[in-house]
């Protein structure tokens, strides 16, 4: 018998067990552990106290050395991880909820007054330069430490909102929604029970993207002095390092930028894997 020849080039890629996704998940878990250790008080509590000398080299006491003021870089990095997670989670969760609500309502009442209003609001928010918005808000909120978070939530929901609106508009005309109406279910119940649960895949992916964006933004804003006010952040560490790098001291710079890079990369790898999972069109033709 002839051996069967492959018509398309046989170049199989393992379909399950996405190794990149797993690696991403592991990285994120390590960072989460670090953040948890800071929240539970296991480590990083001495981030503000000035204990050591200026620019001490890594040692058993100061694992990553000290900064210009003699503060423990390791403790500061651990505490910064907690800050990053706090910001990322808070902004991702609240902005996704806001996006789901406003997008859902806009999509449900699309081409009506409410939809117009929400779209107008989204248009306005999208057209304000972001950093100007944060500065203005920080000024308006009189240096409130939550000004940065508020600004991010107010601007980041628009992306989620737009996607949810589109999906709700699509779902609204699906036959199971019309059947639900035919049974006589109240509109709000249909929205809650039959429409919004089916936008979950969008919310999961969007929340992951917002999480990453929020951490990046937090670092940049803190670096610029608009972000974290009475805490520590990789951004503040980087701001310190601008003075240190000139003196040939790279501790703060390497630790802060390296940790941020690793976490964001890990998270992106994980988010890609999640997206492949929840996207029903991902696999077969």
């Amino acid at each position: 018998m002839n051996r069967a020849a492959a018509i398309n080039s046989p170049n199989p890629r393992p379909a399950t067990n996405d190794p990149v996704g797993i690696a991403g998940l592991l990285i994120v878990l390590v960072f989460l552990l670090i953040a948890v250790s800071a929240w539970t008080g296991l480590s990083g509590q001495n981030w503000a106290s000035i204990e050591g000398g200026r620019w001490e080299a890594p040692s058993a006491q100061y694992w990553l050395g000290t900064n210009r003021l003699g503060q423990d870089i390791f403790a500061r990095a651990v505490q910064s991880t907690a800050t990053a997670f706090e910001t990322g989670l808070l902004v991702a969760v609240v902005s996704s909820m806001l996006g789901a609500l406003l997008g859902g309502v806009a999509g449900w009442f699309s081409n009506g007054f409410v939809d117009e209003l929400i779209l107008w609001l989204k248009g306005v928010l999208d057209s304000i330069p972001f950093y100007l918005f944060v500065a203005a808000l920080a000024f308006a909120m009189k240096g409130n430490p939550w000004a940065m978070h508020t600004a991010m939530i107010l601007t980041f929901w628009t992306g989620t909102g737009r996607l949810v609106r589109g999906e709700v508009m699509r779902l609204r005309n699906q036959e199971f929604v019309i059947s639900a109406r035919a049974i006589g279910l109240p509109e709000f119940r249909i929205l809650l029970r039959h429409v919004l649960p089916n936008t979950l895949h969008i919310l999961v992916v969007q929340a992951a993207l917002v999480f990453v964006a929020a951490i990046k933004t937090e670092v940049i804003l803190s670096f610029l002095g608009l972000g974290i006010q009475d805490g520590i952040s990789w951004g503040l560490m980087l701001a310190e390092s601008t003075q240190e790098v000139l003196a040939g001291q790279f501790g703060n710079f390497i630790v802060a930028s390296g940790m941020m890079f690793l976490l964001l990369m890990g998270f992106n790898m994980m988010a890609d894997a999640i997206q492949d999972r929840v996207d029903p069109q991902g696999g077969m033709v």
């Binding site: 069967a4 020849a5 492959a6 018509i7 398309n8 080039s9 170049n11 199989p12 077969m284 033709v285």
Partner: peptide
């Protein structure tokens, strides 16, 4: 090819 193995 990544989703189907075809041969003849």
């Amino acid at each position: 090819a990544r989703s189907a193995l075809t041969s003849a």
